[in-house]
Design a protein around this nucleic acid. Structure first.
Length: 739
DNA sequence: TCGGGCTCCGGGTGG
DNA sequence: CGGAGCCCGA
């Protein structure tokens, strides 16, 4: 998309030259509530960014009076970048970011009123589960009777409905409800004691704050003269209430969304928020962006022919002045293995036939488990690929372990991080001992570090164990005092070195341990990058907050010359020239559990719509008559979505002729005479390594370089090893031999 | 306290 | 089939 605007152009010029008439109407209608129904690929980010630029350019608002919220860091970053291009140097003081990061900021400023100090820790799901297990055990409840995951799900649902433990207790209908309500109360009390908030708290605690302190509410209501919200269809009830409170004074709230792309219902998103916006703000102005700038007519028509079967939606149909394009290709195959083979064969054919790079292709699936056969087929053909999702970087054990130390230094009452750190690497302090320290700290109202200092006052701890605790305590105190002198990067590097984490891993000598070492190094590198990007004023607390609110999706760049494999959910907001959606079978897509549940089925249909509209030029859909799931070869029927497709937009192709592929764990493939052209990446630096080069690693064996992240001496390599799979290596440590 | 073996179960997951 | 989590023995 052309995005150029000369600095001197008046705002009226942009409205005419860069926007279509509906877009420019939506941008310039600044006063009062605005609902912008923006279909897939209709330029919604453009409208949001131009709207912000328009407000600034015309002196309608100072930067500090604008609040712009998105769901993902990636979307927030993109918005920030694009506004900066339109109106350079005007963004200082603007609140632009994700819901969670903006409200975390608000709580760091104001949370003291609710009993949190500004360095509170943000707990992710696994921290939540760990804390819940503690609470359950304190209440003498067994995890068999009350699985922490189930309890956590119910607590989260209650929080999203803004129900307090007392409310839950009142409406309890059985013993389980009562127990959940009581666990909820204790869990919430513990979070406060630990100075921690979970993701839900980042939304509901601000509500509590704004409701209990009208002066604070008044300040922010006054401050945020203009509010903009992206992906409004995915807001949950808490977010809805927050927006309602903040917009109460000026009522200048512009929301952008597409009910057809609401795919987070199971996570509390309430599609009624967008469907009922006009009821909440009867004076609102409504704009519809129905011109699509992304896909061919065939692709749009096919996608529409499916989603129009939903009952819960604003009726609408996108149009485009793009060419008609090719029909959607529907592949019927025999098995998941042949599906993978045919998808990859088609992909290679498209690659060779057109002016396309590998990053123009995506393979999308409903479940992560489907990625493996595709991966193996791509590896066999030596096609570079990246997988988005799966086990996330910051959720890996070794990464969480290192972060636990840093989090504990930052918040010395954080018992969850304390538990991880105190016995990693194993230093002979067990659960029973850690419990005693925690109990003592709670009883005496001490931080855990203070409690450890007075370990001799805690009864029934053996002298040997006490010595171990003292040494751990000294370590923590040492680094806590260094916190103000060293940058987060220096601190983390010194700590990892002193604790000996890399040395322990090296001793293990396994492939897994080597991989964990790489992850620890990459974490240190990420902290260093954070320090250099944010300058010396960036604190450890700042880093930890950023990490807590970051996911893998944010680091996905389009420069990697590789095919993207990911779930349909991860694909939202992205676009590719050629898209393959695989596994279109009843029970898989739509998933079996949604088939009996009409709203869930509609959500599956929207998911299909999201996937299909990612494609710019060509869309492939495939289904397999047999699929291996749970170790069995299950017979499948084609997805109902296939039957709903407008037949004039598709070409069905059967590939059921006999075709055998061996099922192998990992296909060793020597690429000396690779059938593929070289994967030249023009962006790489002048390093001794090149993309496509064959290398050998002492532990991982032989492999091919798939990607090089420049960064001077800290460059990172992504290597696809023949047997060990894809590995990320940090150059100074990589010790690769060029073959 | 720790690691190995065994059982159980199966979905997507922004921040 | 494969991964996660639990239990039990060393």
């Amino acid at each position: 998309m052309s995005n150029r605007v000369s600095k001197n152009a008046s705002s009226e010029d942009w409205l005419v030259t860069d926007l279509n008439s509906e877009q420019s109407a939506a941008v310039s209608c600044t006063e009062g509530p605005v609902l912008i129904l923006a279909g897939a690929g209709s330029g919604k980010t453009r409208v949001l960014t131009y709207r912000i630029a328009y407000l600034l350019q015309n002196g309608l608002a100072e930067a500090s009076e604008i609040l712009a919220m998105t769901f993902t860091n990636k979307a927030a970053g993109e918005m920030r970048e694009r506004v900066a291009k339109l109106v350079p140097n005007r963004m200082s003081g603007m609140w632009i970011g994700t819901f969670h990061s903006l409200f975390a900021r608000l709580m760091r400023r104001e949370g003291e009123r609710l009993g949190y100090s500004s360095n509170f820790t943000i707990y992710d799901e696994s921290d939540q589960i760990a804390l819940l297990k503690k609470v359950l055990s304190d209440m003498h409840l067994s995890v068999q009777d009350f699985p922490p995951k189930m309890v956590s799900f119910r607590i989260s649902a209650a929080k999203n409905r803004l129900l307090l433990p007392d409310h839950l207790l009142e409406e309890a209908e059985n013993q389980l409800d009562t127990v959940v309500a009581n666990v909820y109360r204790n869990y919430q009390n513990r979070l406060l004691e630990l100075n921690a908030m979970d993701f839900d708290d980042l939304l509901i605690k601000p509500i509590e704050l704004l409701q209990r302190f009208p002066l604070v509410a008044g300040y922010y209501q006054d401050k945020f003269r203009y509010i903009l919200v992206d992906e409004y269809q995915d807001t949950n009830h808490a977010q809805y209430i927050l927006l309602k409170i903040l917009a109460a004074k000026h009522r200048n709230i512009a929301v952008v969304g597409d009910d057809d792309q609401s795919i987070y219902r199971w996570r509390g998103a309430d599609i009624r928020n967008i469907l009922d916006f006009e009821k909440d703000y009867p004076e609102c102005k409504k704009f519809r962006l129905e011109q699509n700038y992304r896909s061919t007519r065939k692709i749009l028509a096919a996608a529409h022919s499916v989603v129009k079967n939903n009952r819960q939606r604003h009726p609408k149909e996108l149009w485009t002045d793009k060419p008609e394009g090719e029909n959607v290709v529907l592949l019927e195959v025999e098995s998941d293995l042949t599906e993978a083979h045919h998808v990859v064969a088609r992909l290679i054919r498209e690659f060779k036939g057109g002016q396309r790079n590998f990053y123009d292709f995506a393979v999308l699936y409903r479940t992560n488990a489907q990625s493996r056969v595709i991966e193996e087929a791509l590896r066999r053909e030596n096609v570079p690929y990246i997988i988005v999702g799966g086990v996330k970087f910051y959720e890996r054990k070794e990464v969480k372990d290192v972060l636990a130390y840093l989090r504990f230094l930052s918040n010395q009452t954080d018992a969850i991080s304390f538990r991880r750190a105190i016995n990693y690497p194993a230093r002979g302090i067990g659960d029973a001992t850690a419990d005693k320290i925690e109990d003592f700290a709670r009883l005496q109202k001490l931080t855990l570090v203070e409690a450890m200092k007075r370990v001799q006052e805690i009864g029934s701890i053996q002298i040997r164990t006490r010595e171990k605790i003292e040494s751990f305590s000294k370590l923590v105190q040492k680094y806590a005092s260094l916190k103000s002198e060293l940058s987060p990067a220096e601190l983390a590097a010194a700590l990892v070195d002193e604790v000996g984490i890399l040395r322990y891993l090296k001793e293990e000598g396994t492939i897994e341990a080597a991989n964990r070492m790489e992850n620890v190094r990459e974490l240190l590198l990420a902290i260093a990058e954070f320090s250099s990007q944010n300058g010396r004023s960036a604190t450890l607390d700042d880093y930890l907050q950023q990490v807590a609110l970051t996911t893998d999706l944010d680091t996905l760049t389009d420069r990697t010359n590789a095919v993207t494999l990911m779930t349909l959910h991860s694909a939202k907001g992205l676009e590719f020239s050629v898209v393959f959606i695989v596994g279109l079978e009843e029970g898989l897509f739509p998933l079996s559990r949604s088939i009996q549940d009409p709203p869930a089925l509609e959500e599956e249909r929207r998911l299909f719509y999201v996937g299909a509209t990612r494609a710019k030029e060509k869309l492939y859909l495939s289904w397999s008559r047999y699929r291996r799931r749970y170790g069995e070869n299950l017979h499948s029927m084609p997805s109902r979505f296939i039957k709903e497709l407008d037949p004039t937009t598709t070409d069905a192709e059967s590939t059921l002729r006999p075709f055998r592929i061996e099922r192998r764990r990992s296909a060793y493939h020597d690429s000396v005479d690779s059938p593929m052209p070289n994967y030249e990446d023009q962006t790489q630096e002048n390093l001794e390594y090149r993309v496509g080069m064959r290398v050998a690693h002492e532990v991982f064996g032989k492999g091919t370089i798939v990607k090089i992240d420049p960064g001077g001496e800290h460059a990172k390599l992504l290597v696809m090893f023949d047997t060990a799979g894809k590995r990320r290596l940090v150059l100074p440590y990589a010790k690769l031999e060029i073959l």
